[in-house]
Amino acid sequence: MDKKEDTMTLHTSYIKYKGVFDYDRFFAVIYNWFVHQSFEVYETKYKFKVPSPTGAENEVNWNTERKIDNYFKYQIKMQFKITQLKDVEVVRKDTTQKMSSGRVFVAITPIMITDYSNKFNTPFLNSLNRFFKKFIYKQEIDNVYSDQLYYRAYKLHALIKEHLNMETKENVFDGRW
């Protein structure tokens, strides 16, 4: 289990959308992005509520991990909540498409983990690890590793917005990392 001092939780971003979207491809698009970025995806929660007059409900939690090297590991926690899910038919460019209507809530939490294999496990090595992170490798941790994870999470954020066809889908920071 990762020690609390070795985990660095970066800012969580949230997306809330209410409207028509392609539910069938929603999870596939996000999963493919993780696979393309060499993340391993673990589904820690899947909850589906039987459709009621207001619609179906779906709650999914994903833990995704990527080992960068022997010391650093990236983790992105995803939380999905889809409510009032109903099937609808949409006419676009003279063709009828089957889509879904509902409310989508997504929370993206990037976490950076150092010493994930717990090699610095004695009190002396532990203090050496803290000294290393605080003084020797601080610039690299702040400006390289955590920045890379942070902006990769924003690329995912933009991908989700693009899939939902939100007005603010543009990502000018796409060029960073």
Binding site: H11, Y17, E167
Partner: peptide, 12 residues
Amino acid sequence: YDKREIKNYETV
């Protein structure tokens, strides 16, 4: 500046 988008809510 470093980007930070806390909320992005869109309702039709």
